[in-house]
Simulated assay, not measured.
Amino acid sequence: MTATRVDADVIRRLPKAVLHDHLDGGLRPATVVELAEAVGHRLPATDPDELAAWFYEAANSGDLVRYIATFEHTLAVMQTREGLLRTAEEYVLDLAADGVVYGEVRYAPELMLRGGLSLAEVVETVQEGLAAGMAKAAAAGTPVRVGTLLCGMRMFDRVREAADLAVAYRDAGVVGFDIAGAEDGFPPADHLAAFEYLRRECVPFTIHAGEAHGLPSIHQALQVCGAQRIGHGVRITDDIVDGKPGRLAGWVRDRRIALEMCPTSNLQTGAAASIAEHPITALKDLGFRVTLNTDNRLVSGTTMTREMSLLVEQAGWTVEDLRTVTVNALKSAFLPFDERRALIEDVVLPGYEAVLCSSPLR
């Protein structure tokens, strides 16, 4: 098949899948303003456009710790039942508007307890909001399925509690687990007991690794903790010389371990220099199972459409490349095999064909 370039309007209509997206990093600016006023939280700006610009500029520090610090304002409005219901529902509707047909959203329940909710109440409230959003999206003719990953914060001591929640709610919309937070100084193996517990309970998990810290964090996540996917993983390129993967990189490629790559976010945290030079393109060309993700749509000022468009415009990606990473994401989604296959065969592949057959190409 001839490689095909497409414009932004076509990209917007392509079916998409996202595996790495944080609930507390994807709020609508206007929602943050309204909820902050309701709970008495002071924001750096009260105009939605100005607030969106503040988030984006504050995150462009080149430092993961400072990037994470911007979340104090989104988390401040996610401490009540009303705030969680609204943000979860809007999260789903925003995915649907962006052409996403499958998404996995992650968040740390332990960060949402200041309003008096219990850990269980946080999870149940978020699931209620996500379900409401999925119902509205389906009624509008833009169905999207969203699964939840519960996170433990790697620098705190409640990771095992979060793992217990993932097991308890695995039949209620929770599809997996993750640890989040500052990587450097907080290795995945610190929480080995939680990961061993999840493996015994057959709950899949991904681990943030290879972003702010290098190959040792990826090795620990995979070979010590047993992660099925890697969040970010851009530093795997440290184990590739002259296009030849080393032992760890070869393990990742040959065993089809998905890399949840987030180009814009990686530029903001200093993990990559530019979209054109981002490792996702070289890794794709070397046969790694790369997936494309937004990470934090508000903080990074992005969408899946924007991430795809940037790769087309600045890294020479084709529609075939976009289809590949979309299928990659669904192959590695934390869903049963038959459900993953149905999404690929019945939704994504026909969706690409329909859009391309009805659109001018360039």
Rank of each mutant, 00 (worst) to 15 (best):
G116V: 07
A97C: 11
T80L: 13
T74E: 05
G83Y: 09
G115A: 10
G115H: 11
T70D: 08
G99A: 11
A97S: 14
E90I: 12
V105D: 10
A108S: 12
L111Y: 12
I68V: 06
G116P: 05
H73R: 04
T80R: 14
G103K: 09
D98N: 06
Y102T: 10
L119V: 05
G103C: 10
R114F: 11
T70I: 09
D98R: 01
F71A: 03
Y102Q: 08
E72F: 06
V100E: 00
S118Q: 05
F71S: 03
R81S: 08
Q79R: 15
A88G: 08
L113N: 13
E104F: 02
E124I: 02
E104G: 02
E89C: 04
L119Y: 07
S118T: 15
A108M: 05
A69G: 10
D98A: 03
D94E: 15
E89L: 01
L85Y: 06
E104A: 02
L111D: 11
R86K: 05
A88I: 07
M78W: 06
Q79C: 14
G115N: 12
E110M: 15
Y67D: 09
G115M: 11
R114E: 15
Y91V: 08
L117H: 02
L117T: 04
L95H: 01
E110D: 14
G103E: 10
L85P: 02
A88Y: 03
E104M: 03
V100C: 00
D94M: 14
L95T: 00
V123G: 01
R114I: 10
A76G: 01
V100K: 00
A88E: 06
L75Q: 14
M78K: 06
E82K: 11
T74K: 02
E82C: 04
A96L: 01
L119W: 03
E121H: 05
Y102W: 13
L117Y: 02
Y67T: 12
T87D: 08
G99Q: 08
I68K: 01
D98C: 04
L84C: 11
E124C: 01
L113A: 12
V123K: 01
L113S: 13
E124G: 02
L113Y: 13
Y67Q: 09
V123F: 00
R81W: 04
T87K: 10
E110F: 14
G99K: 07
R86F: 02
T70F: 07
D98E: 06
V77W: 09
Y67L: 09
I68W: 02
V100W: 01
